[in-house]
């Protein structure tokens, strides 16, 4: 996992630090790294490839090699373009003059997760829910009656029982 030399300096040291120290170290590393345009643009290309592939899963092969040979985290220095593509997926709009600030904080938050890299999780079953319970099944019966009027009280735009949105083109 640990073979990429230069940008990993902070992370390697971090294993010996407390979370607080680690975070402080991160802050300076990211502030520093923010202007490193070269690494930034390469991460942008990588990420865009993943996203353009579209369906989840098929994209894995694109990233699989950087993930398995070195760490994904060194390439993780965020730039506005990454933030913008996430914002587009999440349907959020980021003002141009706030972009740098948002990007920096976004990047700082993400750096936190480099902590996980230290943990060996080989063969560990992911845990989605705290309990080992099974899904309960509901009997197939109609229990709801028409509540349209009450439910549409909160709707910003309705007509003839329809919710209205700006014209959609298929």
């Amino acid at each position: 996992m640990d073979s990429t030399p230069a940008p990993r300096g902070h992370l390697a040291n971090a294993s010996a630090l407390s979370v607080r120290d680690f975070i402080v170290a991160k802050l300076s590393s990211v502030r520093h790294g923010k202007n490193t345009t070269k690494s930034a643009s390469s991460s942008f290309v990588l990420r865009n490839e993943c996203i353009n592939v579209g369906v989840f899963g098929q994209g894995e092969s694109v990233v699989a090699s950087p993930l398995s040979h070195h760490s994904v985290y060194p390439a993780m220095i965020t730039i506005p373009a990454d933030v913008l593509s996430m914002a587009q997926l999440a349907r959020l709009r980021i003002d141009e003059d706030a972009l740098d600030d948002v990007s920096e904080r976004f990047g700082r938050t993400l750096q936190l997760v480099a902590e996980l890299e230290k943990i060996d999780t080989e063969g560990v079953t992911p845990m989605s829910n705290p309990h080992d319970m099974n899904q309960r099944l509901r009997p197939d019966s109609v229990t709801e009656s028409n509540q349209r009027e009450a439910l549409q009280q909160n709707a910003p735009a309705v007509a003839d029982g329809f919710f209205l949105v700006p014209k959609v083109i298929d």
Binding site: I51, V53, H131, Q135, V168
Partner: peptide, 19 residues
């Protein structure tokens, strides 16, 4: 047209339901 932008569906296990 609505499918022009390649979608990244971000599948993950639905936490409101159990297996």
């Amino acid at each position: 047209r609505s499918k022009e932008v390649a979608n990244d569906y971000r599948y993950f296990p639905e936490p409101d339901l159990l297996p």
